[in-house]
């Protein structure tokens, strides 16, 4: 392969990677911006939070909890329960205990959100998720050594 063609090949590969990543990043920030705008239309939002201690008893529900728009799920959970958490730089807050029930072995606190398609496991740390009006969240103390993690009952 000639030097000219080789240079062209690597330039095209580099530009292709940069172009595709930049386009995806623009889409990501555009959708995140729209999501944030939609969630902060009102000054206050009402949310439902369930806490399941994983001991077979029904979940404890805190329905119609009022919180300032733009708050995170961590802020919302702190309103209804005593929690302890650890902040991991770059990743966010990881909840260690809720109402004195601490992570043990492979049992951890995971958060879920109810959507029109069913329960959806939180994909980001709870301090990275902005709560929206009329959304329902569920803290579930469950065995994380099982894949996929069990969704709320």
């Amino acid at each position: 392969m000639s030097i000219r063609r080789r240079t062209m090949l690597f330039a095209v590969l580099g530009l292709l990677t940069w172009g595709l990543l930049a386009s995806l990043a623009v889409l990501y920030y555009y959708s995140s911006y729209n999501d944030l705008i939609a969630k902060t239309q009102k000054p206050m939002v009402l949310i439902n939070i369930g806490v399941n201690y994983g001991n077979g008893t029904p979940a404890q529900w805190f329905n119609q909890t009022r919180i300032r728009a733009g708050s995170t799920l961590l802020n919302a959970t702190m309103l209804v329960a005593d929690i302890e958490y650890t902040v991991f730089p770059g990743s966010g807050a990881f909840v260690d205990s809720i109402n004195n029930l601490t992570k043990t072995g492979s049992y951890y606190w995971l958060w879920w959100m109810h959507t029109t398609y069913g329960w959806y496991q939180g994909q980001v740390a709870c301090d990275r998720y902005i709560v929206g009006d009329n959304e329902t969240y569920y803290w579930y103390y469950e065995d994380t050594s099982v894949y996929p993690a069990a969704s709320p009952p």
Binding site: T17, L21, L24, A25, L27, Y28, S31, Q123
Partner: peptide, 16 residues
């Protein structure tokens, strides 16, 4: 696929 690519773009940029 588009949803997965868009949702995972930040980790992807870091990885790249």
């Amino acid at each position: 696929l588009v949803a997965a690519l868009v949702a995972g773009v930040i980790p992807s940029i870091m990885h790249v």
